[in-house]
């Protein structure tokens, strides 16, 4: 894990080597449902791309293809790393393991030794601010803390590509906004390539270097918005007129895509 000082914006731009790429990707399920058609999208190191789109347009399918859980029925997937992190909408913690045990799980499955595992878990737990809760069971945690544990679990694998499927969708506004800030800080520190799915346009604009809008099923990319605000991001940017204008533009595109 390369814990560095926050990366300067110009360095982010320099590093934009593609880590994840969809080239003309289409997905037709065996039952005939066409979930995606002709998706072209690349995500490079230091890029954080958010996808917004109407429900059922194939956003989760996109991530499942990227992670290898599903294979595209057409087109090619470019993946230049095997360190992939996947954060599901639910925290999917194992209820019989405490936070420490849950955070160690992926490293354990990857066959890493107990000592390394413990160190990595300790580091990841610190990264998400869950120190002191190592011995707590999932049922003793709040929804936000469970999500942090889930994030920490993925971090132990040093992901270079990080996939998020509406991770904060079930959280209240305040917790969500705090976790957004955490995620931005982690992004600046860890320098991964992020592909983030959300229903909240404001969240997408705030977190991302790029926002793409998908159309209703079959999902296609119908709009791309580069977000010009510098990283690390100033939380107050959310209250600026420029921010509001961008959110407006993306929302408008989303509404067009819906109809």
């Amino acid at each position: 894990m390369s814990v560095e000082t926050p990366v300067a914006p110009d360095q982010l731009v320099r590093d934009k080597a593609t880590l994840l790429g969809f080239h003309d990707v289409a997905m037709t399920f065996p039952n005939g449902t066409v979930a995606l058609s002709g998706v072209n999208l690349t995500v490079g190191r230091g890029e954080f791309v958010s996808v917004v789109g109407p429900s059922g347009c194939g956003k989760s399918t996109l991530l499942r293809i990227a992670s290898g859980l599903e294979s595209a029925s057409d087109g090619t997937l470019e993946l230049n790393t095997d360190h992939i992190g996947y954060v599901f909408q639910d925290a999917t913690l194992l209820p019989w393991r405490d936070v420490q045990g849950n955070v160690e799980l992926l490293a354990e499955l990857a066959g890493r030794g107990p000592k390394i595992r413990r160190e990595q878990a300790a580091k990841a737990i610190k990264l998400v601010g869950l120190e002191g809760f190592e011995k707590h069971l999932p049922k003793q945690l709040s929804g936000g803390m469970r999500m942090r544990a889930s994030l920490a679990r993925s971090f132990t694998l040093d992901p270079e590509v990080f996939l998020f499927d509406e991770p904060f969708g079930a959280l209240d506004e305040i917790t969500r906004s705090r976790l957004n800030d955490e995620l931005l800080r982690l992004f600046a520190e860890q320098h991964f390539a992020g592909l983030f799915i959300t229903h909240s346009v404001a969240e997408a604009v705030y977190l991302s270097t790029k926002v793409v809008v998908m159309s209703g099923r079959p999902g296609k990319l119908v709009g791309t918005f580069d977000i010009p605000f510098p990283m690390p991001r100033d939380p107050d940017i959310r209250y600026s007129p420029e921010f509001a204008a961008l959110v407006g533009e993306v929302s408008h595109a989303l509404k067009e895509a819906h109809s």
Binding site: L69, T92, L94, W96, L105, L109
Partner: peptide
């Protein structure tokens, strides 16, 4: 999704049984 979490790490059937299905 818990099963897929294991699948993503390439867990074997035995691992899946021991560390996920059986405790659950």
């Amino acid at each position: 999704q818990q099963r897929e979490l294991f699948q993503l790490q390439g867990a074997s059937r035995l691992t899946l049984l021991r560390k996920l299905q059986f405790p659950a």
